[in-house]
Write a protein that binds this DNA or RNA. Structure first.
Length: 571
RNA sequence: GGGCCAGUAGCUCAGUCGGUAGAGCAACGCACUUUUAAUGCGUGUGUCCCAGGUUCGAUUCCUGGCUGGCUCACCA
């Protein structure tokens, strides 16, 4: 008996380790196999992995996490041989409900209450306000390797796709009210009002109308466009009977969420944990889907059970908010991180852990370090356990843009890259330097060099924007020498130049490093005084990159020249 | 007040349905008569948040608590 139990356990332990996205894909596959309704949808259109975003303003980098999660789960489903596609919908039929800080209130406040798809774009070349903000992010999807189709919720309403669900919901208002009463109590607004917001045909606002009656026979709603429905926008006073179909209006959010699932055949849809806590919008939407629309809520929900929402992705601690206009936007994030690095950052962590990336701490150094390690394990350069190797390889695959890279490129630590850049002031010269120093071989393939260039690009962004003072320096130059050397330091610097001239040629950096100590002894000076004079005269700071390597990087001749500039400037 | 999630080394985390834990970074030591950012090698530093319970055995499962994040009319 015990033996059998042990053997079984051993079997289980040998189960292939999986990345969380692969695990989810397996669960989804299983679900399709036992839910007949889902099997039917799968037969017809494959697995729709769906997400939505309201284009109310600049979208912050945090949203990228959800998109990446949807992206890799769809990929893993395809890896299992299933047909799966990720589609992101723009919720552009939602009303403009608070002033966008980037826009002129004198021009835009009159549009408050209208749907985003009907407000002019702040920038030429876009169909609307909604189109503009949505595309600010989505044009970057390809370079981030997110494979995704796009659609507009307003289009779907206007094409009549929602019509069947609109009829079902309005015919069964009581059931919708029951759900609200159950979750939010008898007094909640949702348990009383008609769950539909008419688009006023007179003033074009969708937030200012109240529907009060549904005529089942004529299939029309009676509505009024009022002044006091919301504080931030006034209705025009228009009223009458109107068809809710084909873009006549929209559901309120929670109902709409539920209605999208049968409308589009959604099988998978994740969401941030703000939506997923008990009693939140996902709970409500699930219940409406189950009780009113007779449709199984998408994974990771299961029936009435909400399932887990993913945690936030924050840059520098503060939760970033689109409306506050703080933090990093999605497109800024894509500008900042090399794409593979951003994917790596978000995909290495399980969705239920907070990712807080602070570029002002040493997170960039750590991230590139972890990334490099993953690569070395994947390519078999570093030893790792079977478990680790499998996980890191999966991660490498999911982190890749398009087909995973099948070659290894030499890795350049960020701080080395940043020193080289600050000395040479150009990526190509820095690469030449790396060859000269023997850090990389000459004649690397162009595609390998591209990987190295991307690393330099990250190093440059780090130095320019986030690196602390101690990592930043500028070499002295003609007319801009250090003027702060005292007479003692000048003497040391002079002796140091002579030493370099006579002894530094042809030494390895290691030998040079050691000989600096010999030099200090030979002139009976404390070594730290030598360093101080050298750093002062080279970069006008009291410390800097490891000196021997630094001198090799600058070049011995050039170093002597620079020190002499400072000696002269200080005299 | 209710709920969800998290709490493992100094930091970031891993730990695959229970067998008293392990990576990277940092730190420390050595190579080297050397504090000065890119070298190599070596060393794991722990009340697995706390207290009970189940079990031969608990970081893992259960109950209660602590701390932190998020959430619970409308809007999204």
């Amino acid at each position: 008996m015990d033996l059998i139990v042990m053997a079984e356990k051993k079997q289980k332990k040998q189960k292939a380790p999986l990345h969380w996205a692969q695990q989810m894909a397996l669960e989804i596959k299983k679900r399709i196999s036992y839910e007949p309704k889902l099997a039917e949808i799968y037969e017809k259109q494959g697995i729709l992995v769906y997400d939505e975003k309201t284009p109310s303003g600049t979208i912050h980098i945090g949203s990228g996490r959800g998109w990446l999660i949807h992206d890799v789960v769809a990929k893993c489903l395809r890896d299992l041989g299933l047909k799966a596609q990720f589609i992101l919908s723009s919720d552009d039929f939602d009303p403009y409900d608070k002033p966008n800080k980037d826009l002129d209130p004198a021009i835009y406040n009159e549009h408050l209450g209208k749907p985003f798809c009907d407000i002019p774009s702040p920038v030429e070349g876009f169909d609307s306000f909604g189109d503009y903000y949505f595309k600010q992010s989505t044009v970057r999807f390809a370079e981030l390797g997110i494979e995704c189709g796009f659609e507009s919720t307003a289009d779907n309403y206007r094409k009549g796709l929602f019509n069947p669900q609109i009829k079902t919901i309005l015919d069964n208002v009581d059931k919708v009210h029951d759900v609200y009463r159950d979750l939010y109590g008898d007094e909640s607004e949702g348990s009383k009002k008609m769950p539909f917001n008419v688009l006023c045909p007179e003033c074009g606002k969708i937030a200012t109308t109240v529907a009060s009656k549904w005529d089942k026979e004529k299939e029309e709603l009676y509505f009024e466009c009022k002044k006091d429905v919301v504080e931030w926008a006034d209705g025009c006073g228009h009223s009458g009977w109107i068809s809710p179909y084909n873009g006549g209006g929209k559901f309120p959010w929670k109902v709409e969420w539920a209605a999208k699932w049968p409308t589009r055949g959604v099988i998978v849809e994740f969401g941030g944990k703000d939506h997923f806590s008990k009693g939140g919008s996902r709970t409500c939407a699930n219940q409406i889907a189950m009780d009113v629309l007779d449709f199984p809520p998408p994974y990771p929900s299961h029936g009435y059970k909400t399932g887990p929402g993913y945690e936030f992705f924050q840059i520098g601690g503060a939760k970033m908010s689109t409306s506050k206009g703080k933090g990093m936007s999605f497109s800024e994030g894509v500008d900042f991180f090399p794409s593979e690095m951003l994917r790596f950052l978000l995909l290495k962590s399980k969705p239920n852990s907070v990712v807080d990336f602070d570029p002002e701490k040493n997170d960039i150094l750590l991230l590139s370090d972890h990334y490099d390690r993953m690569e070395r394990i994947h390519f078999g350069i570093d030893e790792a356990s079977e478990f680790d190797h499998t996980i890191q390889s999966s991660l490498f695959r999911l982190t890749s843009i398009g087909e995973p890279r099948d070659f290894f490129a030499p890795q350049i630590p960020i701080n080395l890259a940043s020193t080289l850049l600050q000395v040479t002031l150009s990526t190509e010269k820095a690469i030449d330097k790396l060859v000269e120093m023997g850090h990389i071989e000459a004649g690397l393939e162009e595609k390998q060099l591209d990987v190295i260039r991307a690393r330099f690009a990250l190093a440059k962004k780090w130095v320019d924007n986030f690196a602390s003072e101690q990592f930043i320096f500028k070499l002295v130059s003609e007319g801009q020498g250090c003027t702060q050397l005292n007479s003692e330091q000048i003497a040391i610097a002079q002796a140091f130049c002579e030493f370099l001239e006579k002894q530094a040629k042809g030494l390895s950096s290691k030998e040079l490093h050691n000989s600096i100590y010999d030099f200090a002894r030979s002139i009976e000076t404390e070594v730290k005084e030598v360093f101080l004079s050298a750093y002062m005269s080279l970069i006008n700071k009291d410390r800097g990159p490891q000196l021997a390597n630094f001198i090799m990087t600058i070049g011995v001749e050039q170093t002597i020249k620079l020190i002499k500039i400072s000696i002269e400037a200080s005299q």
